[in-house]
């Protein structure tokens, strides 16, 4: 009931009407909506009742505004990402272009092998433009025809530190390796090739060197004893 009411005032504010909910993500509810005669996506960061109200408001509002800025910047840089149509900071909501397709997660290990080079390219292009994604899991990559689209910049940031870039790479590879453990070295090599194509070999070397360091920082890593 509470959810429904807040969607109503949001629909009024943005001039949209909800068709149906298409996903209940970890952070946000995602709706298919009608907007000026076209279908679009409405992402609503709903309140999380488990955390304190102040913290919840702060996180949802800040993440929404930052995400809007990142989408615009990524679009300008030529990274495939759905266009931003409208923002509502009061409802922690974004209205975004609808891209048809399925997430890379649904394509399993064969999808990862097929697309890891392209994911490397896209991430390389983002990093070249000072954008880090912060949550580049296969479920945040949409396969649309032969193209990939990057969605959900909710944990992204404007930064160009080696650390943040390596964290991005680490997250994608770590999950990819969990889904397809038997193909991990192939996935990694393909991803790296794509990343180099958009940046440079020396840049990729630096990022992957940092990635090695990050993994060693995890707990109970035997190699760390030798350092």
């Amino acid at each position: 009931m509470e959810n429904r009411a807040s969607t109503n005032s949001l629909e009024k504010e943005l001039g949209v009407s909800v068709i149906r909910r298409i996903a209940a993500g970890a952070e946000a509810d995602v709706y298919m909506v009608r907007y000026h005669g076209v279908n679009a996506v409405l992402k609503v960061r709903c309140p999380k009742l488990y955390r304190s109200l102040d913290l919840d408001n702060r996180l949802r509002r800040n993440r929404t505004i930052l995400e809007a800025k990142l989408i615009v910047r990524a679009t300008e840089a030529g990274v495939n990402t759905p266009a931003l149509l409208a923002v509502s900071p009061t409802h922690s909501s974004l209205l975004i272009e609808l891209v048809k397709g399925d997430s890379l997660l649904t394509k399993g290990s064969s999808g990862l092998i097929r697309y890891s080079e392209q994911v490397g390219r896209l991430l390389g292009r983002m990093h070249k433009n000072m954008i880090t994604h912060g949550d580049l899991t296969p479920s945040n990559i949409i396969v649309s025809g032969v193209q990939l689209f990057i969605i959900d910049f909710g944990l992204g940031d404007f930064t160009s530190t080696l650390e943040d870039k390596a964290v991005d790479v680490n997250l994608f590879l770590k999950i990819a390796e969990t889904i397809a453990p038997q193909d991990s070295s192939r996935l990694r090599a393909q991803f790296r090739d794509g990343y180099i194509a958009e940046t440079s070999k020396s840049h990729a070397d630096a990022v992957f060197e940092r990635l090695k360091e990050i993994r060693l920082r995890g707990r109970y890593i035997a190699e760390r004893q030798l350092q």
Binding site: A24, A26, K48, R51, L55, S139
Partner: peptide, 18 residues
């Protein structure tokens, strides 16, 4: 406590969703 717990619960929530 509130901030640290919110962090772990968020990560668990994401894992459940994934």
């Amino acid at each position: 406590v509130e901030t640290a717990f919110a962090m772990v619960v968020e990560v668990v929530e994401r894992t459940v969703a994934l």
